[in-house]
Write a protein that binds this DNA or RNA. Structure first.
Lengths: 343, 343
DNA sequence: TTTATTTACGCAATCGATTCCGTATTTTAA
DNA sequence: TTAAAATACGGAATCGATTGCGTAAATAAA
């Protein structure tokens, strides 16, 4: 029992015109006289005519909507990105369809196929942790689908990208720890296949080197699901805590890893920062309420979403194919709490 | 430069059949011979045919998609709800289009119009804080659009509803405080126009009465934007703290209010729970990391989302109009921390 | 053998909007 | 006054898939 919307036919019938004339009048075609236009416009207004976007999509092969694939919505970082995407899309008259891969390659493939078949005009993608084979995205890209990669990117696809300078973020965080007197700094990262993991760990590595601290492999742990699975984090933490040369600080490279570590430490009755200091990535607004208030690396998530959307809509609305792509690198912010300073 | 998908026509051409035969063969119609079906199916497989959902939407006036309107995505409670919605919708082959009202009545109206015009098959709505006039929703509902209200509901619309028993949640929380020796318990709620605010405050009120504590109006503060605007919370808290008879505990009725209050207290250098105890609503997973670990009321958000979606799809897929509606009331959980017990 | 009934398929309309053509009428130019 | 050009509009195809209706051929019943 669906309601019947007013169509162009209703206007045509009401005015004794053809649908073509009405259509042209509404689009202000030069072929239509001023009086007829006036009549049609008034009638459309009166009947509260709204063009049917589905019919338009079918005809024009565009839908004025963009698809977004992220691993999870219920995550501050990504929900803030979506906020950013939505704000720009909304202004430009696009609507946003969000899909979650939940870190699964399989779901990412299905999601993208689904979005493509609903003829979204473009895609903003943050790769799932499981994704190593990129053919599903390459195929879309090759067929001309505008794509912007955000946060978790890949070199294999040549398109616009938006990231934060996580190398710098972690580099600064590591130096901050070193300046505060920590010497045995460990790191817990996400999947080794993720661009961001490696970049972040590189920042950690280089900061150690630059400060004449030795880099030790056993100080670097990986959690494949980036903290989505708590046991993973627990295990990584345990490995670090049972080392002969126990670390005095740890850096975590994602939101979930950060809170996972903190939980593990708390449950083990360890004190931050006296037993072990910590700096992690986070996009939560309530880190100051933690015990102790956390020092964290915050990414400009909303801005990333906005930038990605602007770049995407450039691609979508461009007349000629674009060959020159931009990699936009935003700066993270180190928010100083007291989890990184000996008490 | 959009890619051309394989259509039913391509199959027809390849096989020298008519499009109607192909269509019927794909839908396994009795009118088509087994051999032809076989041929068509094989060919469709080979060409990687995918039906065009937009064409289907136009024809069938349904889109196998549902619209969701919430005030904000970047909020644990709502993103968990969306998670729940998505999981069911995904299983049943529906896709989910999310829109944010950002607590604005105007945006809610626009969002709903937009979703309706994209012919979503149904809507899951959580009212914005500003919404007092419900004609935009009533209009859709009267025209037969299946609607499920979630969390922030209204009596004015007769349809399925999914809520948590926040009365009970707050009642229990209040009693918990009373049992722990608190006597001057205040409350900070959201907008007075919101169903949930009043229900929650009723729970507070009744628990006081039942325990022979006096109810005082000055102990109840309202924040119109439910904590979205921090200054609002600060002001409410300040009012409470400057009362002659200063409260020794406070209950906050939403996620944002809870964290807002905690921030205010922390910034003022007040200690929880010694200076003032607190129990608040929250759907965050990291309350145990707070200083002190928070006692909070947690709503089964994912389950709410799942339930709402199941109810909605019942409406959507029902042959006859449904006249009997269900109000599903789920139970919140009181998670005990140490913000509610004197030290 | 003739008629009735299946079987298996094609034609064309439909959904809503756009747009290429064609054309009657009016206006302008020759 | 007549031919050319501009104006203003309608008809019909199109996008992709579905479906009511019509029908030729094959089969079954009389």
């Amino acid at each position: 029992m669906k309601f019947e919307a007013v169509t162009i036919k209703d206007i045509a019938k009401a005015l004794g015109l053809s649908t073509s004339t009405v259509s042209r009048a509404l689009r202000d075609s030069y072929e239509i006289s001023a009086e007829t236009k006036q009549l049609v416009l008034e009638c459309a207004e009166k009947l509260n005519y709204k063009p049917n976007p589905i019919a338009l999509s079918l005809k024009e092969k565009r839908s004025r909507s963009i698809g977004v694939v992220v691993c999870e919505i219920a995550n501050n970082f990504f929900s803030q990105i979506i906020n950013g995407i939505e704000s720009i899309a909304y202004d430009k008259g696009y609507n946003v369809i969000v899909a979650q891969s939940r870190e699964s390659y399989e779901r990412e493939v299905i999601d993208l196929q689904f979005l493509a078949s609903r003829s979204v005009d473009g895609l903003i993608i943050s790769l799932s942790t499981e994704t190593t084979d990129l053919t599903h995205i390459k195929t879309l890209h090759d067929r001309g689908m505008p794509i912007v990669l955000i946060d978790r990117i890949t070199d294999e696809i040549d398109t616009h990208k938006v990231i934060t300078d996580s190398y710098k973020g972690v580099y600064e965080a590591t130096e901050h720890l070193i300046k505060n007197g920590f010497k045995r700094i460990a790191a817990i990262g996400g999947s080794e296949f993720l661009s961001i993991t490696n970049e972040r760990l590189a920042g950690y590595h280089d900061a150690l080197k630059a400060n004449n601290l030795s880099f030790s492999k056993e100080y670097v742990q990986h959690c494949f699901y980036g903290g989505m699975v708590f046991s993973e984090v627990e295990e990584a933490m345990n490995k670090l805590l049972t080392l002969k040369r126990k670390p005095d600080a740890v850096i975590t490279t994602s939101d979930k890893l950060t809170t996972g570590c903190l939980k593990t430490l708390k449950r083990r009755g360890l004190h931050v920062p006296n037993d072990i200091a910590i700096i992690g990535f986070s996009n939560s607004d309530i880190m100051e309420l933690f015990d102790p208030p956390l020092t964290y690396i915050r990414q400009p998530a909303e801005e990333m979403g906005r930038d990605a959307t602007e770049l995407l809509l450039q691609l979508v609305e461009s007349k000629r194919p674009i060959k020159e792509f931009e990699k936009r690198v935003l700066s993270p912010k180190l928010v100083i709490g007291s989890s990184s300073r000996k008490q």
